[in-house]
């Protein structure tokens, strides 16, 4: 019995390789799905009032975060001697998350969204890399400073995105 098993597996391998990973449904299922989405789903950014509210909220949020970041970035730059401020890092990360959530519900052109996403990947990778290094060397003020700077760059980049002309 076990002698036969590899044969079946090998036999099927070429068939599996040819198997389409994707099969289009015979009809568009989206209208039916959309009709079943919970009320949260009805938040459509095409509604002008929603857009206006989102824009106002984003500007307000951006201003609040600007104050926060400006307050922090005016500090002396001698990061090599700065203590590791984990709570401050967490606050900065949270501010970025809130900005990103706010931006997600705003109405930007697809091409702009793609540029945003591409650059967020660059920043997020830098944050992850600094975080890993800091995890390995938790007392390093240099790494903490670099991580903090990466978080601040994320917030400032999202602020820039919030100021962009809407589509």
């Amino acid at each position: 019995m076990t002698g036969q098993r590899p044969d079946d597996e090998t036999f099927l391998r070429s068939h599996l390789a040819d198997l389409p990973r994707s099969i289009d449904p015979p009809r568009d299922l989206w209208p039916a799905i959309e009709g079943r989405l919970a009320p949260r789903a009805r938040a459509r950014p095409r509604i002008a009032l929603y857009r206006l509210a989102a824009a106002i909220a984003l500007v307000a949020l951006s201003s609040a975060v600007t104050w926060y970041v400006a307050r922090r970035s005016d500090a002396p730059v001698a990061v090599a001697t700065a203590p590791v401020d984990r709570a401050g890092l967490a606050r900065l990360a949270r501010a970025g998350d809130i900005m990103e959530q706010g931006l997600g519900s705003s109405s930007l052109a697809p091409a702009t969204r793609a540029v945003l996403a591409r650059n967020l990947v660059v920043i997020d990778s830098a944050i992850a890399e600094c975080q890993r290094a800091l995890d390995a060397d938790p007392g390093s003020p240099v790494l903490a400073g670099l991580l903090r700077a990466a978080h601040r760059q994320r917030v400032e980049f999202l602020q820039q995105a919030a100021r962009l002309p809407r589509s």
Partner: peptide
């Protein structure tokens, strides 16, 4: 940690340069 603090000339200006990688 890879940080060098030093001076050139008689000091005066402040230069900070940081790169992780």
């Amino acid at each position: 940690s890879g940080t060098l603090r030093t001076s050139i000339g008689d000091g005066g200006a402040a230069i900070t340069a940081r790169t992780f990688r």
